[in-house]
């Protein structure tokens, strides 16, 4: 657990998810995916809808159970953890969802959502409330937003609050599942700036897995990129290099389609 500097913070080995539907062919949504996320790195995963990237990130976050393969968090296998053990995993790994408004309980305030992980880890309600305010400020919102309801804030503000919630427990890995796709481009830029600032502040103790369908965004934001196609990783490399010289025909077609 303490071996932060050497080795990947997250390692995925041969991860596979097969969906069986009655009366239909089985679909291999994720097919033997392996990769590593290194300390302080921002790793992008791109692919079209149906490429399996969302299933992959849901498996890593242990929201979906894989059919095969292993997930290692700082060298510790978390693939089959349940209950209390699984909850301890979430102190290291947090997630930002695509639809910010949907990711907050509509019947609870933003502050309540942000402080939930803290209260679950033994903080008093008052201390959690104070910390929520600080986190909101760190993410560029006034502390007073803790009292607001999810439907009272804009998409960009809600996504800032969602990032504040993800940061509350000081995780070392942030999973971003199309975290900026539902936002307007100027807001998207603001959110990326915020994530960039957080990366600079936290250095090697903070890694991002950035799932995205926009290859231009990945080029701008990520250190390394994986290209997913039909559940498999077909290409891996530095974004600039992949875009300049794609080796897989799918990647080439993808890049040629960008207007």
């Amino acid at each position: 657990m303490q071996d932060n500097n050497k080795g990947p913070v997250l390692e995925v080995r041969d991860l596979t998810k097969i969906y069986k539907r009655r009366g239909q062919d089985t679909v291999t949504a994720v097919d033997g995916v392996s990769f590593s996320l290194h300390p302080g790195e921002c790793l992008g995963i791109i692919g079209e809808s149906g490429s399996g990237k969302t299933t992959l990130v849901n498996m890593i976050a242990r929201l979906t159970d894989p059919d095969r393969g292993q997930i290692l968090l700082k060298g510790r296998e978390i693939t089959r953890l349940r209950g209390r053990d699984l909850r301890s995993v979430y102190a290291e790994m947090q997630m930002v969802f695509q639809q910010p408004a949907d990711s907050f309980d509509p019947r609870r305030t933003l502050g309540d959502g942000i402080g939930e992980s803290l209260r679950n880890n033994g903080w008093s309600a008052a201390a959690a409330r104070e910390e929520s305010g600080k986190l909101l400020e760190q993410c560029g919102l006034p502390a007073g937003f803790a009292e607001r309801w999810p439907h009272e804030v804009s998409g960009g503000q809600c996504q800032r609050a969602a990032i504040a919630r993800a940061l509350a427990i000081r995780p070392s890995i942030l999973l971003c599942d199309e975290a900026t796709s539902a936002l307007d481009v100027t807001i998207q830029q603001e959110i990326l700036d915020l994530l960039g600032t957080l990366r600079r502040q936290m250095g090697a103790g903070f890694s991002i897995l950035f799932i995205c369908h926009d290859i231009a965004l990945v080029q701008q934001f990520c250190d390394r990129v994986l290209v997913m196609y039909q559940g498999k990783i077909v290409e891996e490399g530095i974004p600039d290099a992949v875009i300049r010289k794609p080796s897989h025909p799918y990647t080439r077609r993808l890049i040629d389609s960008i207007l």
């Binding site: 976050a61 929201l63 979430y90 907050f104 959502g113």
Partner: peptide, 12 residues
């Protein structure tokens, strides 16, 4: 997503 978020917040 909000139920997933609650799970990630470590709620039982």
């Amino acid at each position: 997503a909000y139920l997933k978020a609650a799970k990630l917040a470590g709620s039982s």
